[in-house]
Design a protein around this nucleic acid. Sequence first.
DNA 1: CGGTCTCTTGACGGAGTTCAAAGCTAGTGG
DNA 2: CCACTAGCTTTGAACTCCGTCAAGAGACCG
Lengths: 190, 190
Amino acid sequence: MFPGLITHIKKYVDLSEADVQLLSKQVELLQVKKKEMLLQEGQVCRSQYFVEKGCLRLFYLNHKGVEQTTQFAIENWWLSDYMSYDLQAPAQFSIQAIERSEIVCLDLAAQDSLVRELPQLERYFRLILQRAYAATQVRFRIHYELSKEENYNQFVSSFPGFVQRIPQYMLASYLGLTPEYLSEIRKKHS
Amino acid sequence: MFPGLITHIKKYVDLSEADVQLLSKQVELLQVKKKEMLLQEGQVCRSQYFVEKGCLRLFYLNHKGVEQTTQFAIENWWLSDYMSYDLQAPAQFSIQAIERSEIVCLDLAAQDSLVRELPQLERYFRLILQRAYAATQVRFRIHYELSKEENYNQFVSSFPGFVQRIPQYMLASYLGLTPEYLSEIRKKHS
DNA sequence: CGGTCTCTTGACGGAGTTCAAAGCTAGTGG
DNA sequence: CCACTAGCTTTGAACTCCGTCAAGAGACCG
């Protein structure tokens, strides 16, 4: 059903066959089409999403009405609007599939009973959140340190192949620059 | 010893008197002076730090040799170089007290045995990491959305009184602008 | 009170944005 | 499977926010 998630969990904690059965009852596998929305800004975010296959993005509508992408999630990453998920308050972000994707969906109530049934998952989620948080500390460092041009080059070499999977304007948005300027940078480096 | 931490934990999970005793054996209370360093860039980060009283900052030395502050931590916040802490690899950041502070220090091995003795702390750490991660998602949104000037105004009104506790140049650094430009902005708004 | 760190001021320069318009590409329906 | 169209990407010129540099004024600590 969702081999990626099982393998991922087993990297951090033990999981028996019986545990996998319990897990299967609490999560749902979604087949989503390109551009399909999993969460709309303003709604309450009821789930966390794990990418088995494909790619998601987190974005919001800025003051000019333009979509601003703030995060991508590829295979083996969890994504959610955590503030909305945590507080069950209206979301400040939308979540959308960039490609046709397979997504494991875990909602708040399910996660709650799941971590009670399988206490080692409490540990799993703690550890992956710690990793994710660590990654944002590094991301802030990069943001402060590099110029937009350097940031682009660093991104491209850090995630080879990924650039081909997403439209330029989304990458530009994520890197905090305009499509026009990104185009200029690309011209230089070719 | 550290009433702030106990109260903080009890907001998320139950904690008996006996539990508090166990906890006390695994953590250490540090009295640190203004400008005292808790972690030096390049060293392995062995602990997470909880601010009982005072204020810490996370920073690194940029390519020009200037200190770049990326995070502050005030009362009831945890702070660490999580990448270094997690992997026990050399830190990319330093941690320093901005004021005379009381800091609860929890190191990796202690945290490990602690969460085994008190499984509810596994949950506590998961929840506070989720909150912290949620906060960074919001912080990124602000970073993308606001101009430097707007960002400054937003920060001042979000944390009234805090601005007085730190030197201008640290705030400027955190907001990603120069002390000179911050000075100009402040002139406008007075 | 003296020296060092911090904050302010102003002139100048450049990285990156904005706007407008012309190519290009990919998804859609016939 | 092709043609059409909407949306994406590129180009270039003008502009602006903000950084850099240098110098002076203030503030804090020993």
